[in-house]
């Protein structure tokens, strides 16, 4: 009985404390909530619009031939961008060969040897700043080293430029993965007599392998969509090329060149190439996100 009356009196007190409906404060609260909710919906519109438009414009030409043929001469219809897909894979392959060893080994230093030191702090800081360096400057860097000194524009020069973008991503993400490996695993390995090298190579790195794979995937997805560093390193090529020492076509550069020339068939091909590129990158991004999320739970 007394319990109930106490409840009702505290309910009444709570009622008094509540903001009165229709007061300025209440209206302001509602307005701000509505406004930010509107913002949240609004910023997703470009994503939906771009995906929708690329799919609508690109799907018409999508067929097996776009993967197996090379681009037609300006103004002619048909053809595809098979050579650009191969070129993208080759430049990304070269970039990965450079970036993965450097990025993973650097991450091992940060997580296993340099944890908490000033050196590690400085390196991490530099890597973060490196992430913010405009992609086109990676192109200038590779141009001034590889293109000038080693026989002109080439797929290799493009790979070097892309590796600059990949290294900090591989390093930072791998480091996060290594840090998640429990300390006990390292101690146990050392306690049974393994050397530090054996511990890292046979216990820590294998345990962090899923995150390292995610790190590589993220870096490849980021570098694979970049055109700016390739414009004057890998350049472009209308023909099939598998030679790392020669200019090579890539999907992003092909999209750029075909979108700024006034031929309708080429523009059409640019849309289809954009659909393929966007499709691959969005699928990879979504999958890698789900993979890392499962890891955390």
């Amino acid at each position: 009985m007394t319990q109930a009356s106490q409840d009702s009196s505290s309910d009444a007190m709570l009622e008094k404390l509540k903001t009165k409906p229709g007061s300025t404060k209440e209206l302001f609260n509602k307005f701000m909530t509505g406004l930010t909710a509107f913002f949240t919906v609004a910023i997703l519109i470009p994503l939906v619009a771009v995906v929708f438009d690329v799919a609508r414009e690109g799907v018409g030409q999508l067929g097996l031939n776009v993967f197996t043929e090379r681009p037609p001469a300006p103004g002619l219809t048909g053809g595809g961008f098979g050579n650009a897909i191969v070129g993208t894979l080759i430049t990304l392959g070269i970039a990965s060969l450079i970036a993965i060893p450097i990025g993973v080994l650097a991450a091992i230093y940060l997580s296993e040897f340099g944890r908490g030191t000033k050196v590690a702090y400085g390196i991490r800081f530099a890597a973060n700043v490196l992430t913010g360096v405009p992609a086109i400057l990676a192109g200038l860097f590779s141009y001034s080293i590889v293109v000038i000194n080693f026989g002109g524009f080439s797929a290799f020069a493009g790979g070097v430029a892309l590796s600059v973008l990949m290294i900090p991503i591989v390093m930072r993400t791998t480091e996060e993965g290594l840090k998640l490996v429990p300390r006990g695993m390292r101690d146990a390995s050392l306690a049974v007599g393994a050397t530090q090298f054996q511990t890292i190579a046979k216990v820590v790195v294998p345990a962090a392998l899923p995150t390292i794979a995610t790190a590589v995937t993220l870096a490849v997805a980021r570098a694979g969509g970049e055109a700016a560093p390739l414009l004057f390193t890998a350049l472009n090529n209308n023909f099939w090329s598998f030679d790392p020492g020669r200019p090579i076509a890539t999907l992003p550069v092909l999209i750029y060149f075909f979108s700024i020339i006034p031929y309708r068939p080429q523009q059409q091909l640019a849309w289809t190439a954009a659909l393929v590129l966007l499709g691959i990158i969005l699928i990879v991004s979504v999958t890698s996100r789900f993979l890392t999320r499962q890891k955390q739970f």
Binding site: I43, P46, L47, A49, V50, D53, V54, A221, G224, G225, E226, A227, A228, P252, V253, I255, Y256, S259, A270, W271, A274, L277, L278, I281, L282, S285, V286
Partner: peptide
Amino acid sequence: LIAAIPSVVLGLW
């Protein structure tokens, strides 16, 4: 995912 869209695709669009 907005951040994942290649800039050249945004340019084309």
